[in-house]
Design a protein around this nucleic acid. Structure first.
Lengths: 204, 204
DNA sequence: AATTATTTTAAATAGTTGTTTAAATTATTT
DNA sequence: AAATAATTTAAACAACTATTTAAAATAATT
């Protein structure tokens, strides 16, 4: 028998996730969460002991989501050009599904860098991905530009994520509607793909 | 006779600026500001009427600083390549001087887009800068890639600002010290310059 | 059906929030 | 030097904060 009504613990966590993403830790009150979850104010502490503990649980999930697909894509058995395109498309999709994700992560880490970075082992994987191997080979045989992996990944991520980070700013500055922004973001995505490949892949 | 001791109003505003930039509006309390300014708690409201009013004043200044040099550089009588380099260098300098600036602006606007955008007339200037004229000409005679100004500016700004937006993340992920990060940022800056010019300026 | 464990509730806790008050101090003007 | 204005102060304000309590309601087990 499947449980149709969600468990209270999950309801609170999901509600808290929504509020935290929108307002950040400081901007969110226990009552905001209780209201969003439509639950009694005491239940957050009953299930999660404190607002802080609940936040840390949620933040961990969100950070995982943010980095989840990256290593997988870096290891896909496809050529560099396709891989870069895949990474950009993946980022773009993520930004569309979770528009608040990046600004939330960046801002929370910016405010308190130390408390929010538990597990770094994940990132150690980056340097041993197929992408890095392909990069080394390409550089060795002259088909790719001499560049470090640490420099490529921000190039890929920054251009797409930035326009979503500053979505409201861009919309205001250029007077764009929601659909105009979506078209613009698509445009930008294609430019970024072409620009990065153009730079990385050397013509013979 | 010059006043050596700063006026209380300015002292409070400068202190508030520092705290707001670091902790954001929600993360900053009136007492934080008073402590940082080393003034009585009541003086903030005496001079600025409310925390909100003080914030809005400061936010306006910060937004102005962020966009100040952009239009000037876009209008400089130099070739496109130099201009792009100048813009990137200007951004880079600003990020070094005010590392909290961009994340602060983006986050505050993200939380409440409507209240924080008073004057848009400034941005209307962008489309009538020399840069736009040079772009049109270049596109017409085939020396520049067909692209809109709205797409170029984010390309320029995103790559440099992004690594500062996520400074702590990048340092942690790649295990960089402060000086290693600075070297890395320099490296990235040069890549970005080359990459954008590479993409924009077409070989004959 | 009675007992036990779990979940939910309203109310209260102590501390913090932005803001105001009214008196005390300092500066300026007459 | 007296009167007036501007500034600074400590104390208080009500509203809000995260969290806890202890009783009530529900579910699970015997």
């Amino acid at each position: 028998m499947k449980c149709v009504t969600e468990k209270s613990e999950d309801k609170i966590k999901e509600a808290a996730r929504r509020v935290f993403l929108k307002k950040g830790f400081d901007g969110t009150t226990s009552r905001d969460i209780a209201r969003e979850a439509d639950m009694n104010i005491a239940l957050t502490n009953y299930y999660f002991r404190s607002k802080e503990k609940l936040f840390l649980e949620i933040f961990k999930d969100i950070l995982e989501l943010y980095f989840k697909n990256m290593v997988n894509i870096l290891n896909k058995p496809v050529d560099i050009k396709t891989k870069i395109s895949d990474m950009i498309e993946n980022d773009f999709k993520m930004m569309n599904e979770e528009p608040d994700l990046v600004i939330f992560i960046m801002n929370e880490i910016h405010k308190e860098p130390e408390r929010l970075f538990p597990d770094l082992s994940f990132f150690k994987q980056i340097r041993s991905t197929l992408f890095c191997k392909q990069l080394d080979e390409g550089i060795a045989n002259g088909t790719l530009r001499q560049i470090h992996i640490e420099n490529i990944i921000p190039l890929i991520k920054s251009c797409v994520e930035f326009i979503f980070l500053g979505k409201h700013i861009h919309k205001k500055i250029y007077g764009m509607s929601e659909e105009e922004f979506n078209r613009y973001a698509q445009e930008q995505k294609e430019h970024v793909k072409a620009m990065i490949c153009n730079y990385l892949i050397l013509e013979s």
